[in-house]
Write a protein that binds this DNA or RNA. Structure first.
Lengths: 218, 218, 218, 218
DNA sequence: AATGAATGAGAGTTCATTCAT
DNA sequence: TATGAATGAACTCTCATTCAT
């Protein structure tokens, strides 16, 4: 029994240490997220993370090999709940179209909830400055307006559904951007014509075979 | 006459200076693009740009206020031809659906043609490493596969068109990413439900009122 | 009797502690030698020593005051057997010349046997790199070759014994280095002329009064 | 003539810049020597060199790629005059034995003149502390005394010349150290027996065939 | 206009040492 | 006695920017 108690104590000690260690590690990752949110990727410095976490700079290296690992871990941990939720949704027994609708809802919600952090993560300050504020303002919106006008033309000539032209324009252009960027990362992207055709097919006619009956009635 | 000649000379000088100045400025922007392409955003240093442009470091500051302006101008100039072309397309007298199809084709072509540069510009090296290679491999593809399976289910139950499930999955997720990111940059984004509904509407049923006749025949 | 037993126990405990303590201490010194051998003086870190010794970093400070003491003790202990052996040799009843011959043999053997460790100890990595590999290659060997040529001249003109010129040159230059370095550490070195004369005397004519008879016969 | 003057001015400018550049570079190397001398190799930090040279830390990297290059250049430049002088001596038309005598004299003189710097260069602080002061005091001198006693025995029994025993002992042991260390750096050292025999041969009988006449007379 | 040496703040990282447990 | 997380000063090196020429 004495032995048992000693064992128990050792266990507790070990457990407590583990917990403390996890606390500090989490503190550091939280601090990294804070710093990222407020200073951007370029502003993510070890000094700032340490100060924000309330530890010495050297302590960061007790828990992480280097800056890259802190960034990676922080991002990883911040995305984990979303991925978990989306996985569960996709694995559920809803109908396929409801799954996709739910996916979009949940995805947008998550981005809204973490917008400050994600804005900075996806486009770091320098880019944000150079690209979003300037590029998007000047050229981007010109294009969006032109596309909106095309959509309006389409609606007027009964070619397109009567949907909000400027929002359609934004989704259209963003989808193009997204697919283009996706091709950048593919080792062997599809033929351009095939991807272009698929995108046009989806955006123009959708992937559904027909509209649900209740919508048809309207 | 003397006056006239002096004036003329001054004019010529001025003109020549303008041209030379433009040359150097363009050289510097071209050099910046080269450096960006080969070294990434983090590797875009004034030293490298100066060396690549074949001028002294101090000269960069004669033509640009600071590094940010060089980056901005270089990116601006590299996107100009695409925007020009797309604008012309959208202003042409093609039918609205042909315009949108053409837009997608041209957009993807441009990204393919400048992939090295754009890859670096959109996701700098550090992010590319941390995000694309890791994030996308682990979590991203799990999601893509799950979505592909959902699409497959939809096709099997005749809910969806018989399109390549995994490519549809990629376009679907990328569109969601794109719209979510777009909301990040909007000062006053739409209600989530509205954006979500619109995305689902577009992806499922498209924006067209009906398929063109020649496709109907198939 | 109780008192006696307690005393005895205390004694045993004390003894056991001493032994254990010695074990750990030796483990640490051995670990230090290992680390020195494989990572050089600059690479001798408390982290590495602790890991190699299989103890925690803090434990090092239980047994040694600081890093310097570990290094000192480790070096001390690694030289002890050589010094012991050489002392015995010099205290033996061999003839003086045999003692000196034996000294040299034993000395060189020891260095050969522990070459990895000693190389690192005598010239740490940085120096080894900067000095030995570069300095010796470029300048040193030029000098050695020049001296070898001088020795060759001497042999040709029957001034010197017919001994391998390049090895003589190396020993000659190294002896000069050695004596020069020795003077660096002497608090009050001899007059330069005296040391120089003595070195020349030794290298040219040796310290023996005459060659042994058996060699004379040859 | 105008042209000539312009050319001349350009030349002068260029020349002046070159000279200034050389000045700063030399300043840095001199500063490095100073820092080495006073703080040892471990104490050679870029901060100290910059401060000593009276330039900003960043300036060091304008003239040298990194710390290693500063160290290398400084050492190189500090040894250059000695090597030059020794080379000249060895290339002169003195007799071989005079050359060797001169070599030793000059070598020792140089070390005496730069003792502070060389002490630090050859054995950095940590070693100097750990090795020279302690090792040499305790064990080294015990050995030297024992060897001196052996030499004394040899002299008493007319086996050795009547030379100062303790200085002979030092030279003897240093020569052994030198040859042993030299073997450490040789890729394929001679057989131990051969090197040992050669060292003994040299130290006992020298390399000369006979003593010069004038010495014989004494 | 063009140069490029000089700057200096600040980056990421290392590591001997301390101390509460 | 043994631990190992925490420290923080010190390290090498980078780089946008300035300025005398």
């Amino acid at each position: 029994m004495q032995f048992y108690r000693v064992d128990e104590m050792a266990d507790k000690k070990h457990e407590r240490k583990k917990v403390l260690e996890t606390f500090t590690k989490q503190d550091i990752m939280d601090a990294a997220i804070q710093v990222l949110t407020h200073h951007g990727i370029q502003g993510l410095t070890m000094d700032r993370v340490a100060k924000e976490a309330g530890v010495a700079k050297g302590t960061l290296y007790v828990h992480f090999k280097n800056k890259e690992q802190i960034l990676k871990s922080a991002v990883e941990s911040s995305f984990a709940p979303l991925v978990e939720e989306l996985s569960n949704l996709l694995d559920s027994d809803l109908s396929p179209d409801k799954k996709l609708e739910g996916f979009t809802s949940r995805y947008l919600e998550y981005f809204d909830a973490h917008s400050d952090f994600l804005r900075v993560l996806l486009y770091d300050r320098q880019q944000a400055h150079a690209q979003s504020r300037r590029y998007r303002t000047n050229r981007y919106w010109t294009l969006v307006e032109k596309i909106a006008k095309v959509v309006e033309d389409g609606i007027r000539s009964s070619l397109f559904q009567p949907l909000d032209p400027s929002r359609i324009a934004v989704i259209f252009i963003e989808t193009n951007v997204a697919v283009a960027i996706h091709r950048l990362w593919s080792k062997s992207p599809e033929q351009i014509e095939d991807d272009a055709a698929l995108v046009s097919e989806m955006l123009l006619y959708g992937i559904a075979t027909s509209r649900p009956q209740d919508e048809m009635k309207l």
